[in-house]
Amino acid sequence: MAMADPHSDSANDPREISSAAVMVRCIAASLIAMFVLGIALGFSGAVAERGEAPGPTGIAIFAVATIGGIAALVWLLLPLRYRRQRAAPSVRRSQRIFLISAALGAVTGLLAYFFSNPRHATTGAENFLLNPSPAVALLLIGALAVGMVLTVMWMVTIDEHERKAYDFGSNLAIHTYLMLGASWWIAARAELVPAVDGPLLFALVVCTWLAGWLWRRYR
């Protein structure tokens, strides 16, 4: 019987990339895509506001930023074709649900942006998150409800190692919320700091959850 190097991880193709690298590349690509979209929106908004064509410097900056962003996206996403294709059936199912959730988030974000109430329009984020119209609010709440169903489906699909990592992250997050929320509230009552910023607290809790989950999964 042939003996393989026990430290080896089936790297038949040296270009093959791990699932951690796939995730990092996808996150980085999402950030760059948002950056490029932001530049395009800012550029078109500035043109509409001034009512005149942009000068050569403006066009050059826009072109360099857009081409650079797209080139970075291609550089990040092209190696994904070498990702490991083989996975256990339950892992493939959970990955499929994860991708559907990500697509739901992206489509909802775009829909919310485009159907936002133009009366409040300053930037897209301020518009649909801080001053949503009733229709946009219902769209976001509906997407959150569907997202919760997908999360439950995902949780019954993942293996025990993933579940432990996810539970560790959620445990860390609830303790962060309890500690940070209570301390901030008390400090604000004592006029040591400004009042509790709900969205910021929410973002910190989500980041803690994500950090704990990923650390436990890939450590």
């Binding site: 042939a2 003996m3 190097d5 991880d9 996975a87 256990a88 892992v91 293996d159 025990e160 190692h161």
Partner: peptide, 25 residues
């Protein structure tokens, strides 16, 4: 596990597929 896997000439991905868990597991 690592020794047994090597004796069967399986990669972590091969074993993960047989056990229906992720390679990270």
């Amino acid at each position: 596990l690592k020794v047994l896997r090597a004796m069967h000439d399986w990669s972590q991905a091969d074993l993960a597929e047989r056990l229906d868990v992720s390679r990270q597991a």
